[in-house]
Design a protein around this nucleic acid. Sequence first.
RNA 1: UGGGGCAUGGUGCAACGGCAGCACAGCGGACUUUGAAUCCGUUGAUCCAGGUUCGAAUCCUGGUGCCCCGG
Length: 358
Amino acid sequence: MKSNNHVFVAISGGVDSAVAAAILLEQGHQVTGIHMKTWQDPRSEKVSPHSHAAISPAQASAQSLNIPFISLDLQEKFYQDVVQPFISKYLAGLTPNPCLFCNPQIKWGILQTYALTHGADYFATGHYARIENQDDDEVRLLRGVDKAKDQSYVLSMLTQDQLRKSLFPLGILTKDEVRDKARDLGLASVEQEESQDLCFLPQGDYREFLQRYASKPIQPGDIVDQDGKVLGQHQGLAFYTIGQRKGIRIAAEAPYYVIGKDQSKNQLEVGFCNQAVQKELLAEHPNWISGRAPRAGDVYDIMVRYRSKPVPGVLTSVTDNEFRLEFNQEIRGITPGQVAVLYRQDECLGGGIIKMAH
RNA sequence: UGGGGCAUGGUGCAACGGCAGCACAGCGGACUUUGAAUCCGUUGAUCCAGGUUCGAAUCCUGGUGCCCCGG
């Protein structure tokens, strides 16, 4: 890559995106900050701590870097494409991961498209991941060097075209190095760590949010064990996820974990940790970053949720619409709605939405 | 209306007559661009009334409640 490109950097107001922009400047690129205003729960009791500031943290970042700043209002689009599906999937008993859909549809779908049609050669973000250019003009998505911060998982639904025009300046750095760099550069907001949960829920209580946005009231029901014995009451199936331990409120000789949801009976099934494991999964709507499905029969490292430890698994079958994985060890918390992502060493190959596991 | 057993945090269990502990649940924190998991920390109890003893969850008496056996 030549060092005089025009790069649009997605600026959030946090440390990572600011350092990413600074690095691009150091590399000699022409840099523009681009920010998207996303939908936030207006009924939230507390408001985002920055909402009263004269300028947004994102704009402040751009200012301190002395780069042009563009802000797009994507509230409606974000609500329709991310928040609505989030709500309806939860009510249907799934556990969605909105970030994996925001990225291809909003952040790359709209922000990157805007950038590329407004003079950008590349679109950069502060993700901890790497892009490797192949000889044949194909790119590969690799884990970030900082394994503890690697975010390739949330980028697994991106396409070859989207990645080819992307840059991840932080991919070769550790979080500590990024923090040091931010300090050296005198960037504001270094000290205040901005890790939030769901970006559209400033204080992060998704249960209360669902309660308010559900089209019909979320009904309590029975908590049962594997034999169907009633152990207690749950507050509503949407408030629990497979593998969950906290919040079941039943004392026993060992912790209970959620092992299933029966929508028709409105029952939450729980069991002890040795019962809360699975060895196979079926995923649908696959996205393969290379554009080609990985070879069936091979073993890959699989992540079944964000920041989970990769476990080896065999890709037993793969079609255009779905694929199956089989693990040689029992793993906990394979959850419909989450995304199973395949890796070959450091390379993120892509993945699909978990439909069922057993 | 005979016999036996039990009674300790919210739950299930420990504690030779000598500082009432553990697990689970709960609460708090760390971690975190999903929900989780995980890790760390933490609140909280001797059924009641007497008695023996320097000292009682522990021994004795009575009461109350529960369980089992016989019926």
